[in-house]
Simulated scan of single mutants.
Amino acid sequence: MTAPQPLLEAVNVRKVYRSGQVSVVALHELSLTVHAGDLVAVMGPSGSGKTTLLNCLSGLDDIDAGQVMVGGADLFAMSDADRTEHRARSMGFVFQSYNLIPVFTAAENVELPLLLVGTPAGQARRRSLEMLDRVGLAHRAGHRPNEMSGGEQQRVTVARALVARPAIVWAVEPTGNLDTAMAGQIMALLQRLNAEDGQTIVLVTHDPAIGAAAGRLVRMRDGRLAADEAVVPVTAGASAPTLG
């Protein structure tokens, strides 16, 4: 049987930050493969290159050498405009700081990625409400961020990341602003979306409990992969919302 093609394949990616006469190599010829349905946690000490790796693999940052293929498309062979459009249509993002628009309701925040790629307003709203229901927040659709708890806001960001049905979701410290109980609920939600929908997720975390909940653990040190291993995931947050 033919092996499945990777969803993401990074080959010899190099990233250098420059300031005046000083150059710092953030990623050293790093290679990584992610298949559809993977749930990958990237861990490592501060300054190891975790967030830089995600920024480069998603095309948010440029690279100095190497190649990044996502869904068969070479990100850095594209123009900036094409790369931005590809990212909007095939990737979702979950950030530590939520990045919700304060004057928008939960439903308006979630539907925004669809509207930006030209989805008709009625269809965008329907899918927004369906996704909020999927993460257990149908009853909060009309609430603004300041009317929701941190855990609820992060579930809205998860719904926003998933509403366009992306090939891959990137999550940068998705539980960093939450207490232990809420962090467990968010990770359990990501686990269930991965298990039930086959959603591919790559997340950066400093929390060993979150890393232990992924099926694959990538460890970084000094801009290099120190380890890449399959693990038996620990179920997170038993009290997470039941997904319909």
Results as ranks from 00 to 15, higher is better:
residue 70 V to F: 14
residue 70 V to S: 07
residue 71 G to M: 14
residue 71 G to C: 10
residue 72 G to W: 15
residue 72 G to K: 12
residue 72 G to D: 14
residue 72 G to L: 13
residue 72 G to T: 01
residue 73 A to N: 05
residue 73 A to P: 00
residue 73 A to R: 12
residue 73 A to S: 08
residue 73 A to M: 04
residue 74 D to I: 01
residue 74 D to E: 13
residue 74 D to Q: 06
residue 75 L to P: 01
residue 75 L to H: 06
residue 75 L to D: 06
residue 75 L to W: 06
residue 76 F to C: 03
residue 76 F to W: 07
residue 76 F to G: 02
residue 76 F to T: 00
residue 77 A to R: 09
residue 77 A to T: 02
residue 77 A to W: 11
residue 77 A to G: 08
residue 78 M to S: 05
residue 78 M to P: 03
residue 78 M to A: 09
residue 78 M to N: 07
residue 78 M to R: 04
residue 79 S to D: 12
residue 79 S to K: 08
residue 80 D to R: 03
residue 80 D to A: 08
residue 80 D to Y: 01
residue 81 A to N: 11
residue 81 A to E: 15
residue 81 A to M: 10
residue 81 A to T: 13
residue 82 D to L: 01
residue 82 D to T: 00
residue 82 D to S: 02
residue 83 R to M: 09
residue 83 R to V: 01
residue 84 T to V: 02
residue 84 T to E: 15
residue 84 T to R: 08
residue 84 T to H: 08
residue 84 T to P: 03
residue 84 T to W: 10
residue 85 E to P: 00
residue 85 E to M: 09
residue 85 E to A: 09
residue 85 E to N: 06
residue 86 H to T: 08
residue 87 R to L: 10
residue 87 R to G: 06
residue 87 R to W: 14
residue 87 R to F: 12
residue 88 A to Y: 07
residue 88 A to P: 00
residue 89 R to C: 08
residue 89 R to G: 06
residue 89 R to P: 00
residue 89 R to H: 11
residue 89 R to N: 10
residue 90 S to G: 03
residue 91 M to P: 05
residue 92 G to W: 10
residue 93 F to N: 02
residue 93 F to T: 00
residue 93 F to E: 04
residue 93 F to L: 07
residue 93 F to W: 08
residue 93 F to R: 02
residue 93 F to G: 03
residue 93 F to C: 03
residue 93 F to P: 05
residue 93 F to Q: 03
residue 94 V to F: 13
residue 95 F to G: 07
residue 95 F to A: 05
residue 95 F to L: 12
residue 95 F to I: 00
residue 95 F to D: 10
residue 96 Q to L: 11
residue 96 Q to T: 00
residue 96 Q to A: 08
residue 97 S to P: 04
residue 97 S to N: 12
residue 97 S to R: 11
residue 97 S to Q: 15
residue 97 S to I: 01
residue 98 Y to P: 11
residue 98 Y to Q: 04
residue 99 N to A: 12
residue 99 N to K: 09
residue 99 N to F: 15
residue 100 L to C: 06
residue 100 L to N: 07
residue 100 L to Q: 08
residue 100 L to K: 05
residue 100 L to V: 03
residue 100 L to H: 11
residue 101 I to Y: 15
